[in-house]
Design a protein around this nucleic acid. Structure first.
Length: 223
DNA sequence: ACCCAGGGTCATA
DNA sequence: TATGACCATGGG
């Protein structure tokens, strides 16, 4: 753990938001109807495209299983069948069940909203299969807490802008970024959504194509 | 036939 | 602490 913390300029970071908003328009994330569905989606979307997550969510919804009480009763092999489209279905069946058990054990959403953000965060991180990004997805988009989500797109964008050195730790990046912003959950929510929308137009990590080189010269990593 | 996706854990050195 | 293997389907 390095002692050097990343310094970002607040006006650059807020300016990036305006730039992305101009390009992509409002995103109104998270694409789910209830906080509970946000949480389930957050686990399922790990290293997986949202399209795959939607088809699994739809399978569960059709069978009236998209609620904590039903999900926690499902045997792992059965849950895994519903999760087939997301990939890693055996792994994610375990992770989702571990999360739901914690959720029910804590008394459900209403009870959890009485907890402090740091308490919620450390609880979430103690669940096997919930890492920093998934925890922060849940904190921001389900519990409406001012926690900025750092994902692969965020990291890639900041590195391409040379605002961050490669391979910086999750917490250092999160703290550097969110301390530049007013701690407004709605603002964080929209900002992260815009970064994801923008990420789809950025060049892939592996092939460093000529077009990507050109985008590099542009103010925010893409034309 | 690749490459990647809105990650995280565990084993090894 | 830092890599690497592993998990696995679907779309480009």
């Amino acid at each position: 753990m390095s002692m050097h913390s990343l310094a970002l300029e607040a006006d650059q970071v807020t300016g990036l938001f305006e730039f992305l908003l101009d390009i992509h328009g409002r995103q109104n994330w998270w694409p789910a109807d209830t906080p509970f569905e946000v949480m389930v989606g957050a686990v399922l979307t790990q290293n997986t495209s949202w399209n795959n997550v939607e088809s699994s969510l739809e399978r569960l919804r059709e069978s009236n299983l998209l609620n904590a009480e039903s999900l926690c009763e499902l045997p792992l092999e059965v849950l895994a069948e519903y999760l087939y489209p997301v990939g890693y279905y055996n792994l994610k069946a375990r992770r989702l069940t571990a999360f739901i058990n914690w959720y029910i054990d804590q008394g459900g959403f209403k009870q959890l909203t009485t907890q402090t953000t740091s308490r919620l965060r450390s609880d979430l991180l103690s669940i096997k299969g919930i890492g920093p990004e998934t925890a922060d997805d849940i904190l921001l988009y389900a519990f409406n807490r001012p926690v900025f989500v750092i994902d692969a797109y965020t990291r890639r964008l900041l590195e391409r802008l040379n605002w961050s050195p490669p391979g910086l730790g999750y917490e250092q990046l999160r703290m550097a970024f969110q301390s530049c912003l007013p701690p407004d959950p709605s603002y964080f929510a929209e900002y992260h959504a815009l970064i994801v929308a923008h990420g789809k137009h950025l060049c892939r990590p592996k092939p460093f194509c000529h077009a990507c080189q050109l985008r590099y010269q542009c103010p925010y990593g893409a034309s």
